[in-house]
Lab assay of single mutants.
Amino acid sequence: QRITLKDYAMRFGQTKTAKDLGVYQSAINKAIHAGRKIFLTINADGSVYAEEVKDGEVKPFPS
Rank of each mutant, 00 (worst) to 15 (best):
K6A: 14
Y8E: 01
K19Y: 10
V23D: 02
A34Q: 13
G22A: 05
Q1P: 11
I28G: 00
D7A: 07
S63G: 13
G13P: 01
M10F: 09
Y8K: 00
S26K: 09
Q14V: 15
K54A: 13
A9W: 09
E57K: 11
E51P: 01
I42Y: 06
Q1D: 13
F61N: 02
S26N: 10
I38W: 00
L5D: 00
T41S: 08
S26T: 11
G46K: 05
F39K: 02
T15E: 15
A18W: 03
V23C: 09
L5S: 00
S26P: 10
E52M: 03
V23M: 10
R36I: 06
N43G: 10
K59Q: 12
F61T: 02
M10Y: 09
G56S: 07
M10S: 13
Y8L: 01
R11D: 06
V58Q: 06
E51L: 07
G22V: 03
P62R: 03
I38C: 01
Y8T: 00
I42L: 09
N29A: 15
G56M: 07
M10E: 15
I3L: 12
K59L: 14
F12S: 03
T17R: 00
R2H: 11
L40R: 00
E57N: 11
Y24Q: 15
A31E: 03
E51G: 04
Y49K: 10
A18P: 01
F39E: 05
A27K: 07
I42R: 05
I28L: 08
D55T: 06
Q1R: 07
L21E: 00
V23S: 06
A18H: 02
A18C: 04
A34M: 13
H33M: 14
I28V: 10
R36C: 07
R11Y: 10
A44L: 11
A27F: 14
Y8F: 05
D45R: 03
M10V: 12
E51C: 09
L21D: 00
G13L: 02
A31P: 01
V58I: 14
V23Y: 05
G46T: 04
K6Q: 13
K19T: 09
K30T: 13
A18N: 01
Q14L: 15
A50N: 00
M10N: 15
I32L: 12
K19F: 09
A9Y: 12
N43L: 12
L40C: 09
A27D: 15
G56V: 04
D20V: 11
A9N: 07
V48H: 03
E57V: 15
T4V: 04
T4Q: 07
D20S: 06
V23R: 02
F12T: 03
T41C: 09
V58N: 08
V23T: 13
R2A: 08
F12R: 04
G35V: 05
K59H: 14
F39T: 07
V48N: 01
Y49I: 12
F12L: 04
E52V: 04
Q25Y: 10
K30W: 07
A44C: 09
G35E: 11
D20K: 07
D45Q: 06
R2C: 10
I42A: 04
T17N: 01
A50D: 00
G46W: 05
G13F: 01
Q25D: 10
P62K: 03
P60E: 07
K59I: 15
E51R: 05
R36W: 07
I3T: 08
Q1M: 13
